[in-house]
Computed example of a mutant assay.
Amino acid sequence: MSFSTLGLSKPLVEAVAEQHYTKPYPIQEDAIPAILRGKDVLGIARTGSGKTASFALPILELFHRAKPVHVKRVSVLVLVPTRELAIQVAEVFQTFAEALTHPVKTVAIYGGVSINPQMIAVHGAEIIVATPGRLLDLVSSNALRLSDVEILVLDEADKMLDLGFADEMNRVFDLLPTRRQTVLFSATLGDAIADINKNLLHDPVTIQIDDEEQDIDLIKQLAYRVDAERKGPLLRYLIKTGNMKQVLVFVSSVRTADNVVTKLNKNGIQAAAIHSKKTQGARSEALSKFKAGKLTVLVATDLMSRGIDIQFLPYVINFELPRSPKDYIHRIGRTGRAEASGEAISLIIPDDEHHFKIIQKKMGKRVEMLPSEAIDLSGY
């Protein structure tokens, strides 16, 4: 199947080819035609399965088919859980919109930065990608209104609920017209998502992509047994001796992220951290450099990894294990995305070994554990 068979016009098909998409991913094959038909959609697919393009492309196709209007209004609203994801999704819209015969303005709005530039930026916007809190701030400031929204997209709805956005989301829903098309994407189908489905979606097309096993099989997983005091030197040894580029390192806390970055930089490895205590400017700059290959290592907490979308990310390293097997799969799934191979390495201290066995059991896959005692880490 090709993108041209999904109902997309020639300009968008050509734009897709320019972004090196060779064929639609499973979520795109089902979601694009359904959205073009005006159907509500409930999509269950993990991050990295190609879902952003699965709603951005058909939405832009609808703009392409419509007659240009002189008075611009917000007709599409995309709600996301984090600033980084807002920026990333808006960039996807902006990239593909360049192919259209008439301009479509997309604006990302999110907290953590001054509201005034965003109040100016939303003027004339037709697509808004927003975190719920800042969206409500702009509505209460009369900078924008939501009464003309025709399509609502909830991206990573499960994560928004996990982060406590339920009340804010409900306030947003109350501001929207009842007659609209609603598209909901989530990595999981829990009770909360089922409630949203029941209350917001009308006769939706349900798409569930169970591709985690296939994606995991594309990832080469390794683990090193290491004492706690040798973990930092081992990380630097692996990066340097492996001549690794674009390494995403996961940690469990802000403090650890900053400590790891400091020691990496002291040892000649270009690194930056991305976490909730960093300013939005610092986070955006670090992410931009990492995506462009100008930064060797990005150290991230689990939440801040949302929005790190690199099609061919070669390495993920778990400096610390996550709390749940599901989070482990989400982490390593940052590599090996959408048919690309990758390598995931975990550094396991003695206290982690039992938890790591549980992760492997839940994952249904055994990870080779290598000893590190004989590795000479002096100088690292």
Rank of each mutant, 00 (worst) to 15 (best):
I59M: 02
L60T: 04
L60N: 01
E61N: 09
L62K: 11
L62N: 12
F63S: 09
F63K: 12
F63Y: 10
R65V: 11
A66S: 15
A66G: 12
K67H: 05
H70N: 15
V71R: 04
V71D: 03
K72S: 10
R73C: 08
V74W: 13
V74H: 14
L77I: 02
V78A: 13
P81R: 11
T82F: 14
L85N: 00
L85P: 00
L85S: 01
A86C: 12
Q88G: 06
A90S: 03
A90R: 07
F93W: 02
Q94K: 14
Q94V: 03
Q94D: 12
T95H: 06
A97T: 06
E98G: 00
E98H: 02
A99P: 00
L100H: 06
T101D: 11
H102K: 04
H102A: 10
P103R: 00
T106H: 12
T106N: 08
V107D: 02
A108F: 06
I109T: 03
G111E: 07
G111H: 06
G112A: 08
V113G: 13
V113K: 13
S114G: 11
Q118A: 06
Q118S: 09
M119Y: 14
M119G: 11
I120S: 12
A121L: 13
A121M: 14
A121P: 15
V122H: 10
V122G: 09
H123T: 05
G124K: 11
A125T: 13
A130C: 00
A130W: 01
A130K: 04
T131A: 09
R134P: 02
L135V: 08
L138T: 09
V139K: 08
V139N: 07
S140Q: 13
S140R: 13
S141G: 09
N142P: 03
A143W: 10
L144N: 00
L144T: 00
R145S: 15
R145G: 15
L146A: 14
V149F: 00
E150T: 08
I151K: 07
I151F: 06
I151C: 07
V153N: 05
L154H: 02
D158K: 00
M160P: 03
M160V: 05
M160W: 05
L161I: 04
L161K: 02
D162E: 01
L163F: 14
G164F: 12
F165A: 00
A166C: 03
A166M: 03
A166D: 01
D167S: 15
D167I: 11
M169L: 10
N170C: 02
R171P: 05
